[in-house]
């Protein structure tokens, strides 16, 4: 498993796309942080960008890479290695590489200009977000057979998590605005890894003051130790569950 991961990392770290991604992230972060004297505002802007770009690149790149090395996976399956090890190895390999790109691209500027609890939170949630979208990419890759469909599905997942889900939430809020929805909202938040990550960071940024009662409730929930554990756990679930489903499919899949 780790052997496979090792060679996948060796392969990916030389890929131009990943290097470009790292550079892009650091340019965005550096330009935001240097343009704005207010670190907090800079982090807010970075969060906004990160919440769009990181899931998109993670899921699309992982899916593309999965399909680009499809024949290689076939070859691996013909070798005396279990399918679990192959998929897990691929996940660790791709995950480590994209995560490293994120940590370097965002972490370097943040540590340099905005080293704080919030910055740390941005790094942690961003990392978990990266991994959960790679996990979703694996799911998209295993349920489809060809590259075009796989990438299409990945884009749909991203689009769903970025926009459609929030649209549905808005619709839900409109339709049931007569009911006390705060608790339901916490559950809803947990159903979308992007929302989960965003709210965790925004709460760190003390935006909760702007959020009124809902914000106070979020703060009291996600700000508490219990809530922190819950949200980190939810993010882990967003990594583990899609990967586990992908593994189930991959084990029975004809290559």
């Amino acid at each position: 498993m780790l052997k496979i991961a090792k060679y996948i990392i060796l392969d990916i770290i030389r890929s131009k796309v990943l290097i470009a991604y790292t550079v892009l992230l650091s340019i965005i972060c550096l330009s935001i942080l240097m343009a704005d004297a207010d670190v907090t505002k800079g982090l807010v802007s970075i969060t906004t960008v990160v919440m769009i770009i990181v899931p998109l690149v993670s899921i699309v790149y992982a899916t593309t890479y999965y399909f680009n090395t499809y024949e290689f996976t076939e070859l691996l399956v013909s070798q005396p290695v279990s399918r679990t090890d192959i998929l897990a190895g691929k996940f660790i390999g791709i995950g480590t590489a994209i995560l490293a790109a994120f940590v370097i691209g965002v972490g370097f500027p943040v540590v340099l200009f905005a080293f704080s609890v919030t910055g740390l939170m941005l790094m942690v949630t961003g990392s978990l977000l990266t991994l959960s979208f790679i996990s979703l990419a694996f799911l998209a890759s295993t349920v489809t057979r060809d590259k075009a469909k796989g990438i299409g599905l990945s884009l749909m997942i991203w689009f769903y998590c970025s926009i459609i889900f929030d649209g549905i939430v808005l619709l839900f809020l409109f339709s049931f605005s007569d009911y006390p929805l705060e608790k339901a909202l916490i559950v809803l938040t947990a159903l979308n890894p992007i929302d989960l990550a965003r709210i965790l960071i925004l709460l760190q940024l003390d935006i909760s003051a702007l959020m009124g009662y809902t914000g106070a409730l979020y703060q009291s929930f996600f700000g508490s130790g219990y809530g922190m554990v819950f949200s980190l756990l939810m993010q882990l679930i967003w990594i583990i569950v899609p990967l586990w489903l992908a593994l189930r499919i991959f084990k029975r899949k004809d290559l």
């Binding site: 807010v44 969060t47 906004t48 919440m51 769009i52 970025s162 926009i163 929030d166 649209g167 939430v169 808005l170 809020l173 409109f174 605005s177 929805l181 705060e182 909202l185 938040t189 992007i194 929302d195 965003r198 709210i199 925004l202 935006i207 702007l210 959020m211 009124g212 009662y213 809902t214 914000g215 979020y218």
Partner: peptide, 12 residues
């Protein structure tokens, strides 16, 4: 809908 503040700074 004050609750929709949870979508602040979201893509949508």
């Amino acid at each position: 809908i004050p609750q929709s503040v949870m979508l602040m700074r979201s893509f949508i």
